[in-house]
Amino acid sequence: MRRQLLSALGAVLMFSLLTGLAYPLVMTGVSHVLFPSAAQGSLIRSHGRVVGSSLIGQEFVSSAGQPLAQYFQTRPSASNDNGLASGATNLGPSSANLLQSVHQLEVAYRRFNHVPAGVEIPSDAVTTSGSGLDPDISIANARLQAPRVAAARHLPVSVVYSLINSATIHPALGILGEPVVNVLELNVALDSRAH
């Protein structure tokens, strides 16, 4: 058994060097040469400065925490889009807390976007995501927000619709994933148009 334990410690050491150090470090180096932008987090610039990652959802709110009408809003988040606290609410499907929160979010969404009672709201607008950092919204959600954004920016709604189209990500092969709108890219496109 003592010999086995010596072999075991040697094995842990050897595999730590090979798979724990050499493999990730070499792959990180190669990734930086081949795919520098992706390896560093697909960062997006606006007016020359980095404003976030196209993969990570962020809040578009005033300093008082109120949603800004001139920006498209991401989905609700369990962590208010805190980049270091990813995660979900983990509330069960019949949890009273969940159902109450969905109801409150629906009321707030209708008021903010002037959506009348007869129009259905897509569920992504009133539910939190798995990561708390979902960067995307559904196309229907974006279109419901478009009139509000257009009014706040004094733009024709048709211009905003066409920007939604350019920020739409279509699934690879038509089937891998869902068609979605990237909110940060859309908002950056709106801002760059204003200047």
């Binding site: 499907p93 019949s94 629906e106 539910t127 995307d136 196309i139």
Partner: peptide, 29 residues
């Protein structure tokens, strides 16, 4: 989830990502 209320649609269309999306990412559906 049928408990979400009548004002919310979970029915998939070309623009709506359908189904129970609580805790899910829209890009996956």
């Amino acid at each position: 989830s049928h408990l979400l209320g009548p004002g919310i649609t979970q029915h998939a269309t070309a623009t709506v990502v359908g189904g129970n999306l609580t805790g899910k990412e829209v890009r996956f559906g």
